[in-house]
Simulated scan of single mutants.
Amino acid sequence: MEKVILDVDTGIDDALAILLAIESKQLNILGITTVNGNVPLDYVVKNTKKVLKLADRNDIPVYRGANRPLIRESLHEFAVHGDDGLGGALVNLTVSTECPDSFAPDYIIQQARKHTGELTLIMVGPLTNLALAVRKEPEIANKIKQVVVMGGVVSEGGKGNISPTAEFNIYADAEAAKIVFHSGLPIKLVSLDVTMKTFLTIEDIEKLQGTKYYDFVLTSTEIYRNFSYEKYGQNGSALHDPLTVGIVLEPSLVTTRKYFVDVETSGELTYGQTICDYRNIWNKEPNVEICESVDAERFISLFINTLKDN
């Protein structure tokens, strides 16, 4: 099985991504690293532990990571994920928030050394932990099999979700993203260009009736679905983070191509923008594999069937 570390800022779609990764039975989840993002780090740790308890996988270790971006002040998305980050879906579930002593970036370094050429990092939050890891140990870029990142908006300029030009995960710590993109790591970028095509509708959710995840998915996504309808006129939940896991499970869900991609860190209107040199104007070596299209229907079926069968 593929050895993976999930790096999360557990809000609603992170939670769904964790469930997909677990219930696929195809991934050896070595650990989950947490990072400040959708909600503050303490919320992220608690939410991650709650999701693991829901899935009866308390054996998966959870590591505390960066509690703020490298430079900027923290940014959170309570309007999208609710006051607790999970839309109130697991408010009555109690968990211990104790974690192993290892700091998440150090854990990533340790596992990259231990599993040279075998480790996949699934990054579905701001890239602060990975940036700290590669700054401390740059050589891990040659030891990691692949880094699959949910982040950015590439060809759909002007259709960001935190600003017209930026996606939340990159915008929340653009300096960290820039470090990661220039690190030499083998990166596959799962951007809004494809994730916004994977909408989980209420009709999809109803197919989970009778399963142990129905109540959680229905309740947790309500605030998310309402936000999407008010903001984008689309009644559903974009499966940003679950698609990122899905691509590790089934790479053929997407078509990809490598380009040189950089991150804007100083623009007044464009901070956090992921800029892709489609025409090779800068004449630089490609550093990021971009997901250009997605079989959204097949992915939604994969997601529903995986949760339904468990």
Score class of each variant (00 low, 15 high):
110 Q>N: 11
64 R>C: 07
266 S>A: 11
238 A>T: 10
192 L>F: 00
192 L>C: 09
248 V>N: 09
5 I>G: 00
250 E>V: 11
6 L>A: 05
152 G>F: 00
306 T>D: 06
12 I>H: 03
295 D>N: 15
8 V>P: 08
167 E>M: 12
244 T>K: 07
74 S>A: 14
226 N>E: 14
224 Y>A: 04
299 F>M: 00
169 N>W: 05
124 V>I: 15
175 E>A: 09
190 V>I: 15
306 T>P: 12
130 L>R: 08
141 A>H: 10
145 K>L: 13
180 V>A: 09
144 I>C: 05
179 I>R: 05
260 F>M: 02
95 V>Y: 06
229 Y>C: 07
32 I>V: 10
184 G>L: 01
241 D>Q: 14
167 E>G: 12
280 N>C: 07
51 V>N: 01
214 Y>S: 00
197 K>Y: 04
281 I>H: 11
131 A>L: 05
262 D>T: 15
67 N>D: 15
269 L>G: 00
197 K>C: 03
58 N>S: 15
193 D>V: 02
56 D>Q: 14
101 D>K: 15
57 R>V: 03
22 I>T: 02
270 T>Q: 08
274 T>F: 09
75 L>Q: 13
240 H>F: 15
271 Y>Q: 05
223 I>N: 07
53 K>R: 14
301 S>I: 05
92 N>Y: 06
122 I>C: 02
215 D>Q: 12
195 T>C: 05
93 L>R: 04
213 Y>Q: 10
199 F>G: 03
291 C>P: 00
50 K>N: 08
72 R>I: 12
218 L>S: 10
289 E>W: 05
278 Y>W: 15
235 N>V: 04
263 V>L: 06
217 V>Y: 02
303 F>E: 00
187 I>S: 07
228 S>C: 14
144 I>E: 07
35 V>E: 12
243 L>F: 08
72 R>F: 06
262 D>Y: 10
217 V>K: 00
236 G>M: 09
89 A>S: 14
155 S>Q: 14
107 Y>K: 14
274 T>G: 04
30 L>F: 05
96 S>N: 12
64 R>F: 01
288 V>K: 06
270 T>L: 14
243 L>Y: 09
273 Q>W: 10
14 D>T: 07
53 K>A: 11
30 L>C: 04
176 A>H: 09
41 L>D: 08
185 L>T: 04
69 P>S: 01
83 D>W: 03
301 S>Q: 14
293 S>V: 09
170 I>S: 12
194 V>F: 03
10 T>G: 01
280 N>R: 15
258 K>S: 14
27 L>Q: 10
59 D>A: 06
310 N>P: 01
39 V>D: 07
91 V>M: 11
163 S>C: 08
139 E>H: 09
64 R>D: 00
21 A>K: 00
23 E>A: 01
258 K>W: 01
196 M>L: 02
276 C>N: 02
201 T>Q: 08
155 S>D: 10
198 T>P: 01
4 V>G: 10
17 A>K: 06
308 K>P: 04
139 E>N: 12
14 D>K: 10
262 D>R: 12
224 Y>K: 12
266 S>D: 13
27 L>E: 09
216 F>Q: 08
41 L>N: 04
137 E>K: 07
191 S>V: 12
158 G>F: 08
88 G>A: 01
221 T>P: 06
188 K>R: 15
